[in-house]
Design a binder for these strands. Structure first.
Lengths: 341, 341
DNA sequence: CTGTTAGCGCCTTCAA
DNA sequence: TTGAAGGCGCTAACAG
């Protein structure tokens, strides 16, 4: 069913039918009802491409999907997508995933912009100096960064307070008497990891504790990385009495290494992990329950979608969009006082 | 830059430029080169909506994204997406995620089809009797099911041999002398889980071993579920000497429960888990290494994309698309002979 | 309040 | 081998 036919059936012009359907105020209420009824009866839906061509709006927001093995380690990504979806659903806005090889992302953003496939894009996991911000700015494609990056430009971003989160977590451990604290971080080419590193160091500095660089490590946020780094840390003497871990997934591996070393979490060694609140990794279900710095990545997705809509629909200024979300420290059973030697 | 302007710059008609760009054979080679050069120089890209409107093809394939908490437990999903992307990238085909509430998926598929947002869709995680197959068939929207479902219709599908995988795995355990084998399955409303259940039972039956229904359980495939079910199984007397587990994520929880019970994996109790080959959960990195039934979900994504393209571009018949992939049994250190009492 | 008329940017038939 | 013209389905000025 096309608009034309529908109009014909109704004995109205396409214009009127279109207006009735799109909620224009100048349409007679009775006429509108007739149109709406007919549309429902015939299961009419405007053709997406035609509408886009006519309005110049794509009705979609874009995400560049890096397909390389090393980039997609992130099980959190799907939660973020779900969060986006939750909000975009309301306006029937689609999410367009544009697959891209690593190194080719810039070209992919370009393509999305120039072919006007999408009205805006999301920049995820920004690196410390992320070239995407300048590119998108130049292309004039609206975007929101999930995270932050160094840029002279005043772009729209939403980030969680990674620095504060890890500072508070480290402080909590210090207050419990821990002095040898290990940091198991994500890759510091990503800004969030650098922020966490910074928070960790500041807390130690504030307590006059020197950082042992042998107890600072980074890697992709996998179970395996968590295991390997923890095993290495635990081999040192004196060994660390506490760990700060960048993801729940890593904490699983860390926990294995701790058990393998014959230690008991929460007594011999403490741990705080960052929790993105993903449903299949619940800190309350762990044994012992895991102390965490908590911030829902799904909620972030929803909010990013909201901001995107404001950018597109209301023409809100990107420069006015800077949201730094506080992060909760949730103390559970994996943290305890530092053991006496 | 629009086609019109580009043509103007070149002193050619839009038609010729369009043909040159789209590889029509009737264009003079020299002309084509000039056009191609100019297009590159001006960074010209056809407007996606306009092209779609003109050709009737959307240049995108659709996935309905259920945003409800309980449905998205699947960290495997992102790997599947990456696999799709790997193939679709070649033809610059986008993936359109259409967010949908649970229960509303059918309407979302409808919407995608009628508004011709996409050329084809993917049906993931089909239930035992999945209504989507009939709907899409009726809508005439091409689709490939990743998995299988009961339907009188002859639809296109790609599935892994879940039945065979779990049959072999169970047989392997039986051959090692295990008699009390537990099954920790995904939700059996999903067809794959039912197939695994079937394979498990057949293997036991073939060995004349009766299934203890107290050692068969299912749930969402999370760490937590794995832990809870395993703890319950281990509380039984006599306790099981082996476990068949539906996902690596579950196996992490199971392993925790085993350790909490003071048992050693691979000696006191054996385990085989299904491995979708996701990069952040590597069975070789576990301690002990985990025996698995292995099948790359990413590879499946790539192949599904390929099939989709054949469906759309070459008009291949859906009825000719039935791929059942064998599943490898990879024996590692988590399986050993059944312990003597 | 409704209709007429032009496009949106591209592809494609038909004619040259 | 190239071009002119029409149309894909919809929206949006501009009239009435």
């Amino acid at each position: 069913m096309r608009l034309k036919e529908l109009a014909l059936h109704l004995g109205l012009s396409q214009t009127t039918v279109s207006r009735a359907l799109n909620g224009y105020p100048e349409v007679n209420e009775e006429t509108r009802q007739r149109v709406l009824d007919a549309a429902r009866r015939y299961d009419y839906r405007p053709n997406a491409s035609a509408r886009r061509l006519a309005t110049g709006r794509a009705g979609a927001i874009g995400i560049v999907l890096p397909t390389d093995r090393n980039m997609l380690l992130d099980p959190h990504y799907i939660e973020f997508q779900a969060g986006l979806g939750e909000r975009l659903m309301k306006d029937e806005i689609d999410i367009v995933l544009s697959p891209s090889k690593a190194g080719d992302e810039m070209a992919t953003y370009r393509r999305m912009a120039i072919s006007s496939r999408v009205d805006a894009v999301i920049v995820s996991s920004p690196t410390v100096d992320d070239p995407r911000v300048a590119l998108l700015n130049e292309l004039g494609l609206p975007f929101v960064v999930h995270g932050r990056t160094n840029s002279p430009l005043d772009y729209a971003w939403l980030d969680i307070d990674n620095e504060g989160a890890f500072r508070h977590a480290a402080k909590h451990l210090l207050d419990l008497g821990h002095r040898r604290i290990g940091l198991i971080n994500g890759e510091t080419r990503h800004n969030f990891a650098l922020d966490r590193d910074r928070g960790f160091r500041r807390a130690l500095a504030a307590h006059g504790v020197e950082v042992d660089e042998n107890l600072v490590a980074e890697g992709i946020m996998s179970d395996e990385t968590g295991y390997r780094i923890t095993a290495r840390f635990l081999a040192q003497r004196p060994r660390p009495t506490a760990l700060l871990v960048s993801s729940m997934m890593m904490s699983l591996g860390a926990l294995r290494a701790i058990r393998s070393a014959g230690l008991e979490l929460g007594r011999d060694i403490s741990m705080i992990a960052h929790d993105d609140v993903i449903p299949f990794l619940n800190p309350d279900a762990m044994v012992p329950t895991m102390s965490t710095t908590r911030s829902s990545i799904r909620a972030a997705g929803t909010r990013v979608a909201e901001l995107l809509m404001e950018l597109i629909v209301e023409g809100r200024s990107p420069a006015s969009i800077h949201e730094l979300w506080p992060v909760d420290l949730v103390v559970r059973a994996s943290t305890g006082p530092a053991p006496r030697d």
